[in-house]
Simulated scan of single mutants.
Amino acid sequence: MSDQLETIEDYYNRLRKNQMKMFDSDDFETGKSHFNISMRKYCSFKSPYNRRDYYKVSFILGKGTFQYGAHQLYVDRPALFFPSPHIPYSWECDGDLQEGYFCLFNQEFFNGNTEFNLFKKTSLFKEWSQPIVFLTDEQAQLSNLYFEQMYKLNYSTYAFRCSSIKSHLASVLHLALENRVDDINPDELPANVRLYRLFDELLNKQFPLDSPAYPLALKTASDFADHLNVHVNHLNSSVKSVTHLTTTQIIKERMFEESKNLLKYTNWDIAEIGYTLGFEQPSHFNNFFKKHAEVSPLKFKSTV
């Protein structure tokens, strides 16, 4: 796997360096929810082989080749492309006729709507999924409609444009899931990816949390290792080899994401939320949340 990681900031800097004005990127702030969309006819004809720290969804009308991890994927008909952020890829156009759209968004945007939670339990954007979904003519027309609306909304002054963009993006993701019949068989995956997949499925099955009466069961890397009947060091090394993150980092990030959702969308008090997430003392949850959000849970709740 390539160790080169391109951030959204790196990507925008590369566009500016090459004097490519595909879209306005002035509103990007690290750590803040971010979404952007562009027509593909403004793309460069070759992108570097890197991992990305952001999500990208492309609606491709045109021919070209993806180098995706160890695989070469040729696109010669309408398709949707959903790469995993953990797998390096590059794209090279085959011919001048390139149409369609692509959008990119960061983790904060993906986490900012509970409607997206169900997609985290699917194969989309995962290392074991096929990243290309080929489309029929009817599906291509539908995809074009969704992306065209997102493009218009992104540059509109409509007060609820962000919510509408997320709804259209969710429709694209649903369309992909309806057609996803060729994901990689678990038996064909490397052992480290198989173990990471089991961990990922266990982690996401625990969310969303429905009631303080049913607190989080698996909270630590050791909890997951015991449940999977493997040594914690083996789990840690497998997860890190795939994601470049530790098992604990992934668990804590998912807990933090859920804590924000509970603060936003429930009337539970701070102590109940902390207890449901596995913190026996409210002060421990308070410290955990402040470390990640740089504000207290109470202040966060009062501003949403």
Rank of each mutant, 00 (worst) to 15 (best):
Q4Y: 06
Q4K: 05
L5C: 13
E9M: 07
Y12N: 12
N13Q: 15
N13Y: 09
R14M: 05
R16W: 05
M20K: 13
D24F: 10
D27R: 14
K32A: 08
S33G: 07
H34S: 11
N36Q: 09
M39P: 06
R40V: 06
R40G: 12
C43Q: 11
F45S: 09
P48H: 13
R52F: 15
R52T: 14
K56L: 11
F59T: 11
I60F: 07
L61V: 13
G62S: 07
K63F: 11
G64E: 00
Y68N: 00
Y74L: 11
D76H: 09
P78H: 05
F82S: 02
Y89W: 13
G95D: 10
D96P: 09
L97I: 08
Q98V: 14
E99V: 06
G100Q: 06
Y101V: 07
F102P: 12
Q107E: 12
F109L: 03
F109W: 15
N111V: 05
G112E: 08
E115M: 09
L118K: 14
K120C: 10
K120L: 13
K120M: 10
F125Q: 02
W128A: 04
T136N: 04
T136E: 07
L142R: 13
N144L: 09
L145H: 15
F147T: 04
E148T: 10
M150V: 01
N154S: 12
Y155P: 00
Y155L: 11
Y158D: 13
A159F: 14
F160P: 05
K166C: 01
H168R: 14
L169R: 01
A170M: 03
A170Q: 02
L175E: 12
L177C: 08
N179Q: 11
R180G: 03
R180N: 07
D182R: 08
I184R: 10
P186S: 14
P186Q: 06
P190M: 00
A191I: 15
N192A: 15
L195G: 12
F199G: 03
F199I: 14
D200T: 13
D200P: 08
E201P: 15
L203V: 01
N204E: 14
K205N: 14
P208Q: 03
P212V: 06
A213V: 07
Y214I: 04
Y214M: 04
P215R: 00
L216T: 00
A217G: 08
S222K: 13
D223S: 07
F224E: 03
F224M: 04
A225G: 01
D226W: 03
L235I: 04
S241T: 07
V242L: 05
L245C: 10
T246F: 00
T248G: 00
T248L: 03
Q249E: 15
I250Q: 06
E253V: 01
R254L: 02
M255Q: 13
M255I: 00
S259C: 09
K264T: 05
D269P: 01
T276Q: 00
T276F: 00
S283Q: 10
K291P: 00
A293F: 01
A293V: 00
E294T: 09
P297R: 01
P297N: 00
L298A: 11
K299H: 07
F300L: 08
S302R: 10
